[in-house]
Design a protein around this nucleic acid. Structure first.
Lengths: 115, 115
DNA sequence: TCATTGCACAACCAGATGGTTGTACATTAC
DNA sequence: GTAATGTACAACCATCTGGTTGTGCAATGA
């Protein structure tokens, strides 16, 4: 089995998820916002780059579905989305299963041989 | 627990792994080479791009550790590396655990309240 | 031997990425 | 009311990315 399974993602969506994860600052933002919602400016305060740069990182994460942004007065609360993380996990699981499938095939080959 | 755990990867290494996965052609190459070793030219035959382009994709995957290239006469056998897949999985697991940790903390808060 | 095949590598190009600064605007604080 | 804060967004820039073509060379096949 493969999990309740995310409904067929397009290549572009998968691209966006992995690409969003391929940056240390963005991974850090995900990490921090998984435990609690944090405003963009509170996030930005901890990185050695401009507010606008952090804003861009957040928007890349948002486009990938890894975080959501919720308006709260003039602030925007950023929260990590565990569902998209699980989507990525299940994608990687598929590769591992393909690999395990190969092993199974080798096994049955051996079984045939010993017939 | 977290798996036998990959030995501390640098940010750059993690970047490379996720970046390599953020391209549909490269994901397809990984998929195909997990079940059997395939030469670069055999891989290239199935994509609508030049041999050199596929060569580049393979080298991105190789730099990320997602495939290995083994010389075999004038050919190069490409095989997917399940270990690096598992490394990526365990990275994603960490995020899920962080999220679960948040839940646990909420639970203990509730527990305190009911004291 | 010599043509063909498989690969490596360099140069080049358009477009994406990751950063910057600057401007504008809504919300909150004083 | 006015200043300060938090965000959005555009323009700009250097570098990276993903493709191309072309050249060279080693291994294989005829």
């Amino acid at each position: 089995m493969d999990r309740p399974s995310a409904q067929a993602l397009s290549d572009a969506e998968v691209d966006r998820i992995f690409r969003a994860l391929a940056d240390a600052t963005r991974r850090d933002i995900v990490r921090r916002t998984l435990t609690e919602a944090i405003t963009v400016s509170a996030l930005a305060a901890d990185y050695d780059m401009s507010f606008a740069a952090v804003q861009k990182h957040v928007s890349v994460l948002e486009a990938a579905g890894l975080v959501t942004k919720q308006p709260h007065g003039r602030e925007r609360l950023v929260r990590g989305d565990p569902n998209t993380i699980r989507t990525a996990q299940s994608l990687l699981n598929q590769y591992e299963e393909i690999w395990r499938g190969r092993i199974d095939r080798l096994d049955s080959l051996l079984a045939e041989d010993s017939d």
